[in-house]
Amino acid sequence: MEVEIFIHKTCVECNMLLEYLENKGLLSKVKIIDTELYPFLAFERGVISTPSVFIDGKLVYAGAVDFDEFEKIISGEKIIKQIDKNNLIEKLMYGIVDSFAATAWLYINRDFDSFMAQKDFVIAVTGLALLNDSEKEEYYNYLRNVMIKEGEKYIEEWKPKMLRNIASNFIRELFWLYEKKISKDVVIQKYPLEVFAHWLMVRGGAVGRVGVRIHSLSNTIIMNRILDAYNFMLENYDELFNKIEKEQTELKAKNRETLRYIRI
Rank of each mutant, 00 (worst) to 15 (best):
M1A: 08
E4P: 09
I5Y: 01
H8W: 04
H8S: 15
T10K: 12
C11N: 09
C14L: 09
M16I: 15
L17T: 04
L17H: 08
L17K: 07
L18D: 10
L18H: 00
N23L: 13
G25T: 13
K29Y: 05
K31L: 12
I32D: 01
I32R: 05
D34Y: 02
E36Y: 13
L41Y: 10
L41K: 11
A42W: 07
A42L: 07
R45C: 02
I48C: 11
P51W: 01
P51Y: 11
D56Q: 12
V60E: 07
Y61S: 11
V65Y: 02
F67H: 10
D68A: 11
E69S: 13
F70A: 00
K72N: 13
K72V: 06
I74T: 02
G76F: 04
K78I: 13
K78M: 10
I79E: 09
I80H: 13
I80P: 06
K85Q: 14
N87V: 07
L88P: 04
L88Q: 09
I89S: 12
I89R: 03
K91P: 01
L92K: 03
M93E: 01
G95F: 03
G95M: 02
F100E: 11
I108T: 11
D111P: 02
S114M: 13
F115T: 08
M116G: 05
D120E: 15
A124D: 03
V125P: 06
L128P: 13
A129T: 06
L130I: 10
L131C: 12
D133Y: 14
Y140K: 02
L143Q: 08
R144V: 05
K149W: 07
E156H: 01
E157M: 09
W158P: 08
W158S: 09
K161Y: 15
M162Q: 05
L163G: 07
L163D: 00
I166P: 09
F170R: 10
E173W: 11
W176T: 13
W176A: 14
L177H: 15
L177R: 15
K180D: 12
K180V: 05
K181T: 06
S183R: 11
V187L: 00
Q189M: 05
Y191R: 03
W199N: 10
R203Y: 13
R203M: 09
R203S: 15
R209M: 14
V212M: 10
R213D: 13
I214C: 11
I214T: 12
H215L: 00
H215R: 04
N219F: 07
M223E: 06
N224S: 14
A229Q: 01
N236F: 02
N236V: 05
Y237A: 04
F241H: 00
I244V: 06
K246M: 13
E247T: 05
Q248S: 07
T249F: 05
T249P: 00
L251Y: 00
K252I: 11
K254I: 07
E257G: 14
Y261A: 04
